[in-house]
Structures are given as structure tokens and as C-alpha cells.
Design a protein around this nucleic acid. Structure first.
Length: 416
DNA sequence: TCTGGGGTCCTAGGACCC
DNA sequence: TCTGGGGTCCTAGGACCC
């Protein structure tokens, strides 16, 4: 007989907005939109509850948010702040239970099975944690409690804001049945629409159907859905134990221009900057990527991705950039204005991949150069050392006589 | 409505190998 | 030459999440 476990899903309330309020208390209680200025290209990252009353929600274009709520205060996002507070949240959770898994910056799963003697029954434990979180971070959270991770996640959503909710084991199906299918994690716009076409609107409707039917229509997901509708952790990610947070599987950076551009110099300078950012993160994580991918979006929003796998993994800005530039030149509809560019790295090399002997010396030199550049950036800011900046200066000469990718004498000149 | 940026996972076809 | 069955890697696209 399988032991009944107890999971918490802890979700911070309006996380980005709440963190911004700590930096600027005058924002409290007001309609606040985090993500950028009201006229900018971009979408809402987070909206305060006051702003939500006007119909503003995350993922909505900023301009739309402005139309719905012109009196809202628009605030730029601060990823560093959110990361810092995410660490604090993590620390609180770890002090509470050793089995913690951060699912994103502002949410986590805890396995608190067997902590009754320490904290008492689940509801009491949740109140203790809630209190501890508020005291340590000044932030509110909501906590869902259930015998499975999936149900705990749905439950925390129902508990919002600033609430605690427990689905007693055995009551899962009854709790889930009246909820919209959209409440099931993994069911988004498209799947919801397809389910509606089949007359399936509530999770309870799903539970009636047999696995085969759902699998045929929705593939692997369908299979899991029926189980989920019955409250089980059926298949996929939700089956896994709560454990150590694994490292990243990919690292990417992308940029949307304020105005679309067909200017090759501007485009390549941007690709260089994005390549640097990716290279830097790879080095921070001690990773080397085998596959480099370009993302290219045109004015009409049509988007392509083009990838290439290297014979040898890299973490060097210049090698990433060379590959990206080649991918871009091969795939750009020449002259067509570009809306977005992205650089994506994945496919980590297994530890200690061989380097060819001839390349090793050059490679080592570059590694040292890059490490030094990273230190400069730490001390003097991102602008201190830049491949992109050097490219803007004398791009043509470099491409012909001093191809980017080899240590060049021009570099020092630009680093001061 | 005029649509960010960072990710994960899944599907599917073709190459290539045995 | 009308032709098999897997396994794995690569690539492209898309749904979804926060």
C-alpha cells in the first residue's frame, strides 16, 4: 500500500509587484503594472490587485493595459530584485523542510510528509510557514495542500490571495470536478479551445472520458489528463519526486527592437551583444553548448528558428557569434525589417570533452580573456567590455582582415 | 489587443547506422 | 530494386508556464 504523502505548493502573491512595493512603499494599494512603460512594445509581467480590477492581467500588451487603466503606475521590471527575493523565499522554505523544489522565481513545492510531530497537522504547518515567510520577507504567499503536487498547485491558485487551502485526501475528484479545464496546468488557450469543441468544459467532464479517446485526440497529454481529472499524479513531470533543482537545459537571450530594422550593422551588433550575454551565462554556469540557435521574427510576427550543432562545444562569445552570424546570413530575407532576434544555446557537452590539440592554445587564451572581461563587467558594469561596441566602431575592417573569433589587437582599445 | 523574455516539454520528419 | 525495423541524433515548430 502506497503511503499518503503531503505536498505544499507555495505561490507568492503578485510577486513582482510586491517586491517593487518594498522598494517604493508609495505604490502600495495602487494600480501598478510591472513590465515597462505604457507606450512601449512589451507585455505586462505582473499587475497589482488594484490594477486587475480594471481587467489588466499578465501577458497583456502594455498599450492595452494603458487603455484599460490609464491611471495605473507603470514600472520597469527589475530581474535582479526578483532573483534576490526569490533566494530569500528559498531560504525560508529550506528552513522549514529539506524537500524543497523551486518551480520558478515565485513558487515552490515542498514535501512535508512526516512533519506532524514538528509542526502539527498540515493546516497548522501551513500557517506556521505563512507567518515565517511574512516575517522574513515581508511578502504574502498562498499555500495549497494536497496529497499530490498537481492538486496542490491547483489548490494554491484557488487559495489566492494570501490564503491557505487543504484538499483532504480522497476529496480530490470532488474538488476538481467543478473547475474549468483551463485550471489544469498544461491546458492553455489551444487545448482549452479543442476541449470546448468536444463539449468538455469542466474537469469533471474530463474524468468521464476514457484514456484511449483522449490519447488519440491529444497525444501524450490526453493520457495524463484523464488521470489528472481524477486527481492522480498521472504521468509526466508531476510524477517525479521533489528533489534537487537541476541545472538549466538551455540558455538564451532575445531582443525586440523598439522599431523594426533592416540595418545589417544594427542587426549584427545586436546579435553580437546577445552572443556575449549567452556566452557569459554559459561561463557562469561552467557549461559548454553544442547547439547554437538563431531566432528571427519579422514585422508580421512570422518567426523562424535555425539551429546548428558544432563539432565541438563552446562557451566563447566569438564562436557563438560566428555561428549566429552565419545562420542569420543564410536565412534572412535580405533587407526585410526584423522585429526580434534571439540567440539560444543548448546541448551541453558531457564533462571533459576532448579539444583538438591545435585549437587548445588559442582556446585557452580566449577563456582567460573572457574570464577577465567578466570580472571587468562585474566591477564597472556591462558596458565596460563589449564585442558589440567594438563591432559598431569598425565593423567592415574586422570582418575582412581580422575576423571576429581570433584574439585581436583592437580589443584592448575598446576595453577601457 | 498588436503581441517580452526566460524557460520546459512534446511532436514529427529525415539522416544515418545496424 | 518495388524494400524492414529500431535506435539515436538533428532540426523546426509549437504549446505552455511564470
Amino acid at each position: 500500500m502506497k503511503e499518503v504523502r503531503t505536498y505544499f505548493h507555495v505561490d507568492m502573491d503578485a510577486f513582482f509587484v510586491s517586491v517593487e512595493e518594498l522598494y517604493d512603499p508609495s505604490l502600495k494599494g495602487k494600480p501598478v503594472v510591472v513590465g515597462g512603460q505604457s507606450h512601449e512594445r512589451g507585455v505586462v509581467s505582473a499587475a497589482s490587485y488594484a490594477a486587475r480590477k480594471f481587467g489588466v492581467h499578465s501577458a497583456m500588451p502594455l498599450r492595452t493595459a494603458y487603455q484599460k487603466c490609464p491611471q495605473a503606475i507603470f514600472v520597469d521590471g527589475h530581474p535582479d530584485r526578483y532573483r534576490e527575493y526569490s533566494h530569500r523565499v528559498h531560504d525560508v522554505l529550506e528552513s522549514f523542510s529539506p524537500l524543497v523544489e523551486m518551480a520558478s522565481v515565485d513558487e515552490a513545492y515542498l514535501d512535508i510528509t512526516g512533519t506532524e510531530r514538528l509542526y502539527g497537522p498540515p493546516l497548522r504547518a501551513a500557517h506556521l510557514l505563512h507567518e515565517r515567510m511574512k516575517k522574513a520577507t515581508q511578502l504574502n504567499c498562498s499555500i495549497g495542500i494536497a496529497a499530490s503536487r498537481l492538486v496542490a498547485k491547483i489548490t494554491s491558485d484557488q487559495a489566492k490571495p494570501n490564503g491557505i487551502l487543504w484538499v483532504i485526501p480522497g476529496c480530490e475528484a470532488a474538488f476538481l470536478a467543478p473547475l474549468d479545464v483551463r485550471k489544469v496546468p498544461g491546458v492553455g488557450k489551444v487545448t482549452e479551445k479543442n476541449l470546448h469543441l468536444l463539449g468538455i468544459r469542466k474537469v469533471g467532464d474530463l474524468a468521464q472520458l476514457d484514456d484511449g479517446f483522449l490519447e488519440e485526440r491529444f497525444g501524450k497529454w490526453g493520457m495524463a489528463l484523464a488521470g489528472k481529472a481524477r486527481g492522480a499524479d498521472a504521468g509526466g513531470w508531476f510524477d517525479t519526486e521533489i528533489g534537487e533543482d537541476a541545472g538549466p537545459k538551455s540558455i538564451s537571450h532575445e531582443h525586440t527592437f523598439n522599431e523594426d530594422t533592416g540595418n545589417l550593422e544594427q542587426i549584427e551588433a545586436t546579435l553580437a551583444r546577445l552572443s556575449e550575454m549567452v556566452g557569459r551565462r554559459l561561463r557562469e554556469h561552467g557549461l559548454e553548448a553544442r547547439t547554437i540557435q538563431l531566432k528571427l521574427r519579422y514585422t508580421d510576427f512570422s518567426t523562424i528558428t535555425r539551429a546548428h550543432s558544432l563539432p565541438r562545444a563552446t562557451q566563447l562569445d566569438t564562436e557563438i557569434y560566428e555561428e549566429i552570424r552565419e545562420l542569420f546570413r543564410r536565412n534572412w530575407k535580405t533587407g526585410a525589417p526584423v522585429r526580434l532576434l534571439g540567440v539560444h544555446a543548448s546541448g551541453w557537452a558531457e564533462g571533459g570533452e576532448q579539444m583538438d590539440l591545435l585549437g587548445e592554445d588559442r582556446h585557452q587564451k580566449w577563456k582567460e580573456t573572457m574570464a577577465a572581461a567578466d570580472r571587468m563587467r562585474d566591477r564597472f558594469g556591462e558596458k565596460a567590455v563589449s564585442l558589440a561596441a567594438s563591432l559598431r566602431g569598425n565593423f567592415r575592417e574586422r570582418t575582412h582582415e581580422n575576423p571576429v573569433g581570433l584574439p585581436g589587437k583592437n580589443r584592448e582599445k575598446n576595453s577601457k
